[in-house]
Write a protein that binds this DNA or RNA. Structure first.
Length: 521
RNA sequence: AGGGGCGUAGCUCAGUGGUAGAGCAGCGGCCUUUUAAGCCGAAGGUCGUGGGUUCGAUCCCCACCGCCCCUACCA
């Protein structure tokens, strides 16, 4: 075992041997500590030099060395713990000959424990006056450079442990993500929801339109899919009388990667019986505004060049949004009534395409698409990028929404809404379709239409569950990763996922082999 | 999948058709309140990989590998 940089690796191994030769246990089993570096900083930041002298504070602090400055018979170092750095001061006349020998053999990256008391240096920095020093773990590899840190995104993602150590704000992002999920659980807990876990390995990957990952169970000799959504299982649970359920967990979609897409991603899905999508609009706004307030301590978030105000929600129907954001240069905007008329979306698409060709934009391909699909495409082309402020877009074309209930007054529309903020699509919700006959018909239409992102098989068990009776229910899904992006002002999903999917690293050895490689053209 | 960009020391980056530099880190030395510590000295590179053009390539051309960004599918 030998890693780059080899010279430093070997050098550090030598030092480890020298430390052992001095009589220190090179791998001690524990360190009884009184404070982490962060705790020291938190508790004693306001203590003056005089106060620390009058009332000495003894501490035992573990931490990882970030910097070392040797000054002959003394030396300073900073140790890191819980995301904060704390200075230590080591003197030969205090720690003794052997202790100072140890200090000289320490490297940046080593984990040590110090015993001593707090004081302030001439420049006023809170510092541990070290009386005893121990090595807790030797680092055989160096840390990235102290001033510029680690900037190479590839190394940052592959060796996230380095990124977390060296880039303080990265730690903050994941602390905030954890806080967000914790607050989410409190929110649903307080509303009598029950948290559940449903299968991630499924015989039929339903509940969304996406290409699934395929796997196989040996003992049962079963082909299985990694789930693309928990939706159909959660609704089975509502049938079973769990009137309010939620799940926070991973979904897997075998699609391309982008700044907004990782093949595995985390979703919150929640279902509430005896409610419709209007109820969920209120609940969703309350959830998001509350989360932003408790997690960020404010309701206005900076996101890139924008300020996103979570007290200023707007609600637009999809047709209203098309009218509202219709480009002026494309001529008079179609009204919701125009878009509702038969042939209306077709005419609007033609009008849009004329404008698109003139302005070097991608036109919409109208061939063989339904009015509903065209309306959805128009919305994406014209409106989506403008949805910076928190917005609910509602009343989707029914033929884009096979699991949603139709509106009573307009069966071409589904009772469905999506949540947008910061230009990100954050979530999706609807009044759940609970008429088993209509559900079967919509499933069959979907299967007939075909495509890799559609299940090949009818989920009969789900239909049987619906026949048992799903109460009127509304459900929603919220992308946790994207929400984290918004709350931490990150613009790539990889910045909010600890280990995003990357191609395997090629080290000198043979390429990685999979037991079963599925060949696809 | 298509288009654009990037790849030089462990890290952050300069640079040139005549095989390379800085700062930090590392190594040897000096230094008892420093903090991007300082000073002296020595070391460190198949310039992503493989071809081609050339007397000569890290630089020019081609292919490949990896990463980033945009577009397409999706949340």
């Amino acid at each position: 075992m030998l890693f780059e940089p080899q010279d430093q690796f070997l050098q550090r191994k030598r030092k480890l041997e020298q430390i052992a030769a001095l009589g220190y246990d090179p791998f001690p089993h524990k360190f009884a500590f009184t404070h982490t570096p962060a705790a020291v900083v938190r508790q004693y930041a306001s203590r003056t030099a005089a106060e620390l002298e009058a009332q000495p504070i003894s501490v035992r602090v573990p931490g990882r060395i970030l910097t070392i400055r040797l000054h002959g018979k003394t030396g300073f170092a900073h140790v890191l713990g819980e995301g904060e750095r704390l200075q230590i001061y080591v003197r030969k006349d205090v720690v003794g000959e052997r202790g100072f020998e140890l200090f000289h053999r320490l490297d940046i990256g080593d984990i040590i424990g110090v015993v001593g008391h707090l004081f302030r240096t001439r420049t006023g920095e809170l510092t541990v006056w070290v009386e005893e020093l121990v090595l807790l773990t030797k680092a055989l590899l160096p840390l990235p450079e102290k001033w510029h840190g680690l900037a190479d995104v590839e190394v940052r993602y592959r060796q996230r442990y380095l990124d977390l150590l060296v880039n303080v704000d990265v730690r903050r992002v994941f602390e905030r993500r954890a806080r967000l999920i914790a607050e989410m659980r409190r929110f649903f807990e307080a509303r009598d929801y029950i948290e559940v876990e449903t299968p991630m390995m499924q015989l039929i990957a339903g509940g969304a339109t996406a290409r699934p990952f395929v796997t196989h169970h040996n003992a049962l000799n079963l082909p299985l899919y990694l789930r693309i959504a928990p939706e159909l299982y959660l609704k089975r649970l509502v049938v079973g009388g769990l009137d309010r359920v939620y799940e926070i967990n991973r979904n897997f979609r075998n699609e391309g990667l982008s700044t907004q897409h990782n093949p595995e991603f985390t979703m919150l899905e929640f279902y509430q019986a005896y409610s419709d999508y209007r109820d969920l609009m209120d609940l969703t706004e309350e959830l998001l505004t509350g989360l932003v307030r408790t997690v960020c301590g404010t309701t206005t978030l900076p996101y890139g060049a924008h300020q996103v105000d979570f007290t200023a929600w707007q609600r637009l129907s999809m047709r209203e949004a098309i009218q509202r954001f219709w480009p002026a240069e494309a001529g008079p905007a179609p009204t919701p009534a125009d878009l509702a008329r038969p042939g209306g979306p077709h005419r609007a698409v033609e009008q849009y395409n004329t404008y698109a060709r003139r302005t070097q934009r991608t036109p919409i391909e109208p061939a063989q698409l339904s009015e509903g699909v065209l309306t959805g495409l128009l919305f994406e082309a014209v409106a989506e990028e403008h949805l910076i402020q928190p917005t609910l877009i509602y009343d989707f074309p029914a033929d884009l929404s096979p699991l949603a209930k139709r509106r009573d007054d307009d069966p071409t529309l589904a009772e469905r809404f999506e949540i947008f903020a910061g230009g990100l699509e954050l979530g999706n919700a609807y009044s759940e379709l609970n008429d088993p006959e209509e559900q079967e018909q919509r499933f069959r239409e979907q299967i007939a239409r075909g495509g890799e992102e559609v299940p090949k098989q009818l989920d009969e068990d789900y239909l049987r569950a619906l026949c048992q009776g799903l109460p009127p229910t509304a459900g929603a899904g919220l992308g946790i990763d994207r929400l984290t992006m918004l709350l931490t002002d990150r613009h790539s999903i990889r910045e909010v996922i600890l280990f995003p999917l990357l191609r395997p690293e090629v080290r000198d050895s043979a390429p990685p082999t999979a037991p079963e490689v599925v060949e696809r053209k």
